[in-house]
Amino acid sequence: MRTDLARRIVLVVALTVLAIPFVIPTVWMIASSVKPLAEIFQSPPTLFTSSPTFEAYAEAFRFQPFARQYVNSVYIAVVVTVITLVVSSMAGYAFARIRFPGSNALFLVVLVGLLVPSEVTIVPLFQMFTEAGMVNTHWPLILVTALAAPCVLATFIMRQFFIALPGELEEAARLDGLGRPAIWARIALPLAKPALSAVTILTFLASWNLYLEPTVYLTSPELFTLPQALTRFTDAYGGEMWNTQLAAATMTVVPVLIVFVIAQRQFVEGLAHAGLKG
């Protein structure tokens, strides 16, 4: 019993030390965003300032259409996530539960989408979207994310989940006269909540974090997304506006973090129960 307690203490201490680099950067970012500029690089550095100022937060909105950029990021991530949920749950279901000629070969074709790095496709895609008149619009960010790589991962996850689903439920529904689309919508999807929540998290974050794509496709500040906007807090000559950057970064992180802390059980359990067993 005593060794058990000792073990537990060692475990908690070890975990606490390990957690430092995971937590401190976020804390430091939030704390520094209210420091006067001169204090950010003060040596020795401070963690918390004695004279907080929210000037940098106001400046973030003055300097760029930051609210607009915030809306852009949120709505793009939401649209992408919704499309991905529909597309991947349909495809994943079909690949897992429906027998049709060529399904294995087609699944392999789809999987290739997971393996092609976006750097291979970005130049040709840029040219294609240019030809289609979609550069400097949100279309490329939505279409590519919702239908290519992140969606393929989602399809993969959905397939793994549906494969593990017991077949009896479907048989019963079939005897009740339901067709495939109805079975998918009324039987399979409600059961797939853990997998759907995992896909929601992964897809939303994939879209939320996109950096290379907006950098390439978007040139108007009012169309920018947040990661891209964060690197643009530089004065007219390229000098970094450190405190503004930190204030803006804090504003992009804190709401997501709050949502995460509130919903962390669903987040983690959702991923954990998605039936990801290879």
Binding site: F126, T219, S220, P221, D235, G238
Partner: peptide, 20 residues
């Protein structure tokens, strides 16, 4: 059109390359 200084050249050439 105000482009960020840090990526000005890249953005401008991307516009040119894209026929825009």
């Amino acid at each position: 059109e105000s482009l960020p200084f840090a990526d000005y050249n890249t953005t401008l050439t991307t516009q040119i390359a894209g026929g825009n």
